[in-house]
Computed example of a mutant assay.
Amino acid sequence: MNLQTLTEHAVNSEIRELELLSLEGGFYLVRIRLDDGLFTLFDDRAKPMHLRSITQLRDLLQTVRAFPCVLVQQCAHDEMCGRDTGSVEEMRIPFSLT
């Protein structure tokens, strides 16, 4: 999905959630959840768009209608210390585009 398509979905109130996925190396990927799936935001070169902060995302989407957003991070403590049983859940922290 590119920025133009994201804007169209936002205008039509079709975006259920935007996930800002924190990755190792200090960058973020944007994933957009619609009723029919989860889509990565691509740049003009058709490559996944790499962002450096929530502020950069806010600047990028400043003219787009607001919708639910969440910062998604893996829990490093659980990964470093290990767990006896069960899967390691990601942290999901809601935030606003404003």
Rank of each mutant, 00 (worst) to 15 (best):
F67H: 13
A76R: 12
L34M: 04
F42M: 07
A76N: 08
Q73I: 02
M91N: 14
D59P: 01
A10E: 06
R31S: 05
L20N: 03
M1S: 12
L51N: 04
M49F: 11
Q74R: 15
Q56G: 13
R65A: 15
M49G: 00
L61E: 01
R16T: 15
P94Q: 07
R83N: 13
S96K: 11
I93W: 06
V88N: 08
S96H: 10
G86V: 05
E79R: 14
M1I: 12
Q74W: 00
L3S: 07
S13L: 00
A10D: 06
H77T: 14
S13H: 09
S96M: 12
T63V: 03
G25Y: 08
T85W: 00
A66F: 07
R31Y: 12
T85N: 12
E17W: 07
E17A: 12
L34C: 03
G26H: 05
L51H: 10
R83C: 11
V88E: 08
Q74L: 00
R31L: 08
L6Q: 07
C81I: 01
Q62I: 04
H9A: 13
T7H: 13
L97A: 02
A66R: 14
L34W: 03
H77S: 07
L71W: 05
L97S: 02
Y28P: 07
I15G: 02
F42H: 00
L51M: 13
A46Q: 14
H77V: 06
F67R: 02
Q62P: 01
T40I: 10
D36E: 15
M1F: 05
S13I: 09
S87R: 10
L21Q: 14
F27R: 09
T55A: 15
S87E: 10
E89A: 05
S22Q: 14
T55Q: 13
Q74M: 11
L18R: 01
L60K: 04
I93N: 11
M49Y: 12
L21Y: 10
T98A: 12
I15L: 05
D59E: 09
G25D: 04
L29K: 12
L23N: 10
G26E: 07
V88T: 05
L57G: 01
I15E: 04
I93E: 15
L20K: 01
Q62R: 13
D59L: 09
L3W: 08
L61I: 08
I54A: 04
G25C: 08
D78H: 00
E79G: 00
A66S: 14
D84M: 14
I32N: 05
M1P: 03
P94I: 10
P68M: 09
K47N: 15
V70Y: 04
R52D: 10
Q56A: 13
E17V: 09
E17Y: 10
R16C: 15
T40L: 08
F67D: 03
E14K: 14
L3F: 13
E89C: 05
F39V: 02
F95D: 10
R16S: 14
L21F: 04
E19W: 05
V70R: 09
D43V: 04
L57M: 08
V64G: 03
H77Y: 05
L6C: 05
V64E: 06
N12W: 01
F95T: 07
F27T: 12
A76Q: 07
K47I: 08
E14S: 11
L57K: 04
L71G: 04
P48H: 06
F39K: 13
R58T: 02
M49D: 04
L18I: 15
A10L: 00
R65L: 15
D36P: 01
S96C: 14
E79L: 09
S87Y: 08
M49T: 01
